[in-house]
Amino acid sequence: MPAAPPFLHAPGPRIRRGAVLPAALLLAWAAAHSGLVNGHLLVPVEKVALVPFLDPQGIHLWPGLAASLARMAAGFTIGAAAGLLLGLSMGLSRTADRLFGPTLHAVRQIALYAWIPLLTAWFGNGEPAKVVFIALSAFFPMVLNTQEGLRTVPAAYREVARVLTLSRWQLLRRVLLPGAMPSIAIGVQLALIYAWLATVGAEYAMGLGRGVGTLLSEGREHFRMDIVIVGVLTLALVGFAINAAFGRIFARALRWRGPAR
């Protein structure tokens, strides 16, 4: 499983250089608007910023965002809990791994969005189908990372536990779980991100109800570029916020690994 890319360097004088292109693009956008191109697609920069506050359509962003986050929370909780349980059992028991592992790896190969037609056929276009889809997205990274984390706890540590005659429960609580925690944390982070994308994807594909995805698809249908841009930015920013917030929790919970990472 991929870790977060080490792409975030400390900013320095590079900020100046890095700002050049985005600024140029913004300028070009503003300039283009004041003239030539097809008016309703190239909305003015300043208007986009006001859309979520003033526009009668754009104002739906806020309840939509709340609905999306609630939906995501429901799906994530179900999927991540199920993934954690299955990952734990597969990581702890060889039999469970053999029972479920191959099936899981085969099913995982089905690109996630290919589940949408089946889920809507089974559960309709309403809330259940969306939540199941979100749960499914959160489920896979959780299972895989939990199992991987347990599997890679060094045998040397298990031996220490045996020498100290720890019970199974103590072994699990004091050795296996903490040893697997870095990997499980990555699993949680990936599950959150996947769940968020799945939330918007499900809303976009299934329609019905409020949500950021619904806002996006309506914006597209009505050729409202400003609303689409606001929706896309929301999608990206929430993803970014999840990563950032989680990175901090992560660093705190795993401070025993030292600053070397």
């Binding site: 100290l164 720890l166 040893g179």
Partner: peptide, 16 residues
């Protein structure tokens, strides 16, 4: 165990 402090590492000897 890297996730335990010195104190906890010594203490785990008494866990059982």
């Amino acid at each position: 165990f890297p996730w335990l402090t010195v104190e906890e590492n010594v203490g785990i000897g008494l866990e059982a």
